[in-house]
Nucleic acid binder design. Structure first.
Length: 547
RNA sequence: GGCGGUAUCGUCUAGGGGACUAGGACACAGCCCUCUCAAGGCUGGAACACGGGUUCGAAUCCCGUUACCGCUACCA
């Protein structure tokens, strides 16, 4: 980790501030395009271009985009892990809002917790958003690049008497907190440092006693009209005097967010419900800083099957996990959109364009929802069925290659054939991974024969052998297209006096080793005459060999 | 503990005083279609947390209870 906070020189900064009555602090604008950590990733991708963003816009209906009231929303994840589905959902709603009503969707990486933030996580967040197709409209901002502004905002509050120095140590605070809790009481900071005489404060500063800066919460009640929950009010008495600047001069979350949201002129803060209790603190900070308030919207949490907030122990919770499981980004977006929002009618499966067109803040839900993987898979199957083979091919080819089914060159040479196979398989599978698995017998001869299918369809070995013998000679003389094959094979069944199924099922096992596959005549065409006959021959051999 | 939030089938939801013997979807079961599977169609079981109000009338409004979730850091 690079020492991105080097050179803060905090005590000097504090001193100079104390002598001055206001922070003259030249506004420090974060160098947004530069990653504080040196990541070469400031711009997301071509998908971020203005042109692209506006192409989304014209797909939606109406909604004014007059610059004066243009919305500015942001997604502000902390890079301490992979992009979680909860975070992805939050990002999606912010994105949907902007694509629907106009404005800008911003990305801010909250990397001020240097102990936990990693470049790898930042990359994972970019990858996840890119995969989902959630493009942001301005270069990503790194919060760590703005600590100077955060600090000057904190010092300004100090200078204006809206905050005070607190000399209490962490150890002391912990002890008092523990004591209060053991008596069943809620711990609230008793403002003892706010009552220190001026000369005592000066003495401690002179003695180099470390201090934090605490925001002095005013009397009254803080309320706001939450876009999803209606009015929420907190008596300020329940809001603790929060620390806004650590004793090492770095900012605390609530201050940093407010400072950045003001700087980025955010108009609507849409985030998870776990931030509800941070909101009064932040509103108070906006007011103290003299900045106009944004609107707030708190989305419900996403829960695991056990009803607890979704976390790693629930299994796959990173969006990247689902990408690897074979879920389509379109399906993931669709599914996530329905977790906390409803179109108001019974519409569930829909493409992104409809999601944008139908999105409305009215449809935002308050109740936490359980992440149901089964339904995600079903929805993915629906999307697979709606997506053309041409679109699916670039997704499936790498998988087929990595599974050793073929080389990329081979796939390219047999593209028409490959597309035809995809077309037959896409409505039968629920994930791309499953489709590739189903494709195995069409690529390789060493596929597995399903024991159950063999036991059931090749029960009477002699009879099956005679049957396949007949099928083989009929196949050898048949024209090789679905219509002729069907005609000839059905005729054979008639001649033999058996139902078509009695003939086709044993053949299916011979061809693909399973009792489930696309229509048998399509399978024959896909396999080709030579390979089909070879597989029948092999089945005959297997039937003869078996005791 | 304190503060805040939420409460309709197992799950996601529709519902916003009478159209509700509560609708749809996933999952589950059965049937149909059919060369199998998938898809599709049909059918079935399955819910308004509880208690008070308000009202001619409450899933819908109000209060309380309960349950669950979140927050309660010199984390974000």
């Amino acid at each position: 980790m690079l020492n991105r906070y080097a050179g803060l020189n905090l005590y000097r900064g504090f001193e100079s501030l104390r002598l001055r009555s206001s922070s003259d602090g030249r506004p420090v604008v974060g160098r947004a395009t530069l990653s504080a950590s040196g990541l070469p990733l400031a711009f997301p991708s071509r998908a971020t271009s203005r042109a692209d963003a506006s192409s989304h816009r014209h797909m939606t209906d109406s909604t004014p985009t007059d610059a004066a009231s243009s919305h500015r929303l942001r997604f502000a994840p902390s890079p301490t892990g992979f992009l979680h589905v909860g975070g992805a959902r939050t990002a999606l709603f912010n994105w949907l809002f902007v694509r629907k009503y106009g404005g800008a969707f911003l990305l801010r990486i909250e990397d001020t917790d240097k102990a936990r933030s990693t470049d790898e996580s930042t990359r994972a967040i970019f990858d996840g958003l890119r995969w989902l197709g959630l493009d942001w409209d301005e270069p990503a901002v790194y919060q760590g690049a703005n600590v100077a502004r955060h600090r000057s905002d904190a010092l300004r509050l100090l200078a204006e008497g809206k905050a005070y120095r607190c000399f209490c140590t962490t150890a002391d605070l912990d002890e008092r907190r523990k004591a209060a809790e053991s008596q069943g009481a809620a711990f609230v900071y008793d403002r003892r440092c706010d009552r220190l005489p001026v000369d005592e404060i000066d003495r401690r500063i002179a003695a180099g006693v470390p201090f934090t800066i605490r925001f002095r919460v005013p009397d009254g009640t803080t309320r706001w009209d939450d876009m999803v929950r209606g009015e929420i009010a907190f008596p300020n008495a329940d809001v603790d005097d929060l620390i806004i600047l650590r004793s090492d001069g770095t900012p605390i979350y609530n201050l940093a967010v407010v400072s950045d949201d003001i700087a980025q002129r955010i108009t609507l803060v849409m985030r998870g419900e776990d931030h509800i209790s941070n909101t009064p603190k932040q509103i108070l900070l906006y007011e103290a800083l003299g900045a106009p308030l944004p609107r707030f919207a708190h989305l419900p949490n996403i829960l695991g099957a056990d009803g607890k907030k979704l976390s790693k122990r629930h299994g796959a919770t990173a969006v990247g996990d689902y990408e690897h499981l074979g879920i389509l980004a379109e399906a993931m977006v669709n599914f996530l959109a329905l977790l906390g929002w409803s179109a108001g009618d019974d519409r569930e499966v829909m493409p992104r364009a409809d999601l944008i067109a139908l999105f409305s803040t009215e449809g935002l839900l308050r109740k936490p929802g359980v992440f149901d993987v089964k339904k995600l898979e079903w929805m993915n199957g629906q999307h697979l069925g709606m997506t053309s083979a041409e679109v699916l091919e670039p997704l499936l080819s790498p998988l087929a290659v990595s599974q050793g089914l073929a080389t990329a060159v081979e796939l390219a040479t047999r593209r028409a054939w490959w597309l035809q196979l995809i077309d037959l398989l896409r409505i039968r599978g629920r994930t791309t991974v499953e489709i590739v698995r189903m494709a195995v017998p069409y690529f390789r001869d060493d596929f597995e024969y399903d024991p159950d299918a063999v036991a059931k369809q090749w029960k009477d070995r002699d009879a099956t052998a005679r049957l396949l013998e007949a099928v083989r000679s009929r196949l050898a003389g048949s024209g090789w297209d679905p219509v002729e094959l069907e005609r000839d094979l059905r005729a054979l069944a008639d001649e033999l006096g058996i139902g078509a199924g009695k003939l086709l099922q044993p053949l299916r096992v011979a061809l693909v080793g399973s009792s489930a596959s696309p229509g048998i005549f399509d399978v024959l065409v896909l396999l080709g005459r030579e390979r089909s006959l070879r597989r029948v021959d092999r089945a005959l051999t297997m039937l003869a060999e078996a005791d």
